[in-house]
């Protein structure tokens, strides 16, 4: 998961807030989170963060920003229900309850990040992405070297890889 602000670093700070009955979520890297003062729980609202300091959205009621009010928008499972039964309602719940999950998982597992098998489709997409990147680097090189025959061949190859997706 990549930070939604800088779109570069890995997001490690996950925020959920209820604003006017709507759940807002934000995934930030540590640096952006600090910069925006997220680590300081007193003066922060997701709306502000998303819309900039000038945001005219009303400040969220502090009571409603508590995680126990979080609810999965897809299946309707509430945080309280999850706490009670220990079961998620659907795959989307993992996004909805991401904040409180980290603590739960830490006590339960060896780590909090998947290190096992990656689905066939994703692996293939990743391989394809790597191939495309390699080919376009080569293409740049060929163009720079004015080897247009090679460039044309590479361009066709890139087209073929994209078409196979």
């Amino acid at each position: 998961m990549v930070c939604q602000l800088c779109k570069q670093k890995e997001a490690t700070v996950h925020l959920t807030q209820i604003v006017e009955d709507e759940m807002k979520k934000l995934d930030l890297c540590e640096a952006c989170a600090k910069q925006k003062g997220v680590t300081d729980p007193t003066g922060f609202s997701l709306a502000e963060l998303l819309l900039g300091a000038a945001g005219d959205a009303p400040a969220a009621d502090p009571a409603s920003s508590s995680v126990s009010d979080a609810k999965c928008t897809r299946c309707g499972l509430t945080q309280a229900e999850f706490k009670k039964n220990g079961r998620m309602g659907c795959s989307e719940c993992y996004t909805a309850f991401a904040d409180s999950l980290e603590v739960v998982l830490k006590g339960m597992h060896k780590g909090t990040r998947h290190r096992g098998k990656v689905p066939v489709g994703l692996r293939r997409a990743a391989d394809q992405q790597a191939t495309l990147e390699k080919l376009s680097t080569q293409l740049q090189g060929a163009i720079a070297a004015e080897d247009f025959e090679q460039a044309a061949r590479l361009r066709d190859e890139i087209k073929a890889v994209k078409a196979a997706a």
Partner: peptide
């Protein structure tokens, strides 16, 4: 299958999460 790059395969019970 339901999968997240952070959590792996998503399961009903978090005790089975990941692999």
């Amino acid at each position: 299958f339901a999968f997240s790059s952070q959590y792996g395969y998503l399961t009903a019970c978090p005790t089975n999460l990941g692999t």
